[in-house]
Amino acid sequence: MKKKLRAGVFSFTACYGCQLQIIKMEELTEVLKAIDFTDFELVSDKKEEGPLDVAFVEGGISRENQIPALQKIRARSDFLVAIGACACDAGIPGIKSFMNEAEAERIVYGEDFRKNLRSISPRPIDKYVKVDYYMNGCPIERFEFHKVVKELAIGRKPKEKRHAVCLECKIKENKCLLDYGMPCMGPVTNGGCFALCPSNNAACEGCRGPVQDANLPAFVALLAEKGVDKKRAKQMLQRFGGRTALFESFVEKMRD
């Protein structure tokens, strides 16, 4: 029997939903045959320092002291997996980075308290460290976590599969929500969720981030046909994946 993987699970600015997905896995007992969580704050007091075969990092970076903590995790890990929209793309907390941030801080905490926050503009973790695998989603899909662990356990380096949500809707023979006037982000969003939202008659909200080669000008033109103005189109692109290179460079060039 091969030695078990030494793994850590870490959290920065996020909702803990992705870690929760790990604990909630029905296959958890099976996963534990291949992996030892030697550093997993949510479930254990004991933390072993030292090298890790794999680190799973949840959450984006929005506080200065998180940067060195993240770099330390990278330095001790062979393979680093960003788990969830916040770590991969900055996610929902990243919305603040498109606002007047001082104003946002004032709205929630008031002027006097701002100095205590030590908030910095939220960004995905790859602004600060190299990421080996992006496990997209808000939250992550449990089967993908399971798959990644299995591949690592047999010594393979897992690789993401990239295709748009639309492909999965086609396979499932879903009706196209855009045809029904719903502002669905499927055409520009990574699949891997089996088109979960459209399959439930809900427009894709883009939580798995931009799919490579997304045709953004065509997408925004399509939205305009459905009555979505540019300001709203921008908001949609800046909801989960606004701080990814693809969406960021496109939105910068968008004229109102």
């Binding site: 803990y16 939903g17 992705c18 907390p93 919305i95 603040k96 801080e105 929630v108």
Partner: peptide, 28 residues
């Protein structure tokens, strides 16, 4: 914990998107 800014981030967004956005405050 890093401060959260939901009360500011929901501003100017259409009502239909708010419930699913604020669900992200907490996975629990």
């Amino acid at each position: 914990e890093a401060a959260q800014y939901y009360e500011a981030m929901v501003r100017d967004k259409p009502f239909h998107e708010i419930p699913i956005t604020v669900g992200r405050i907490c996975g629990f």
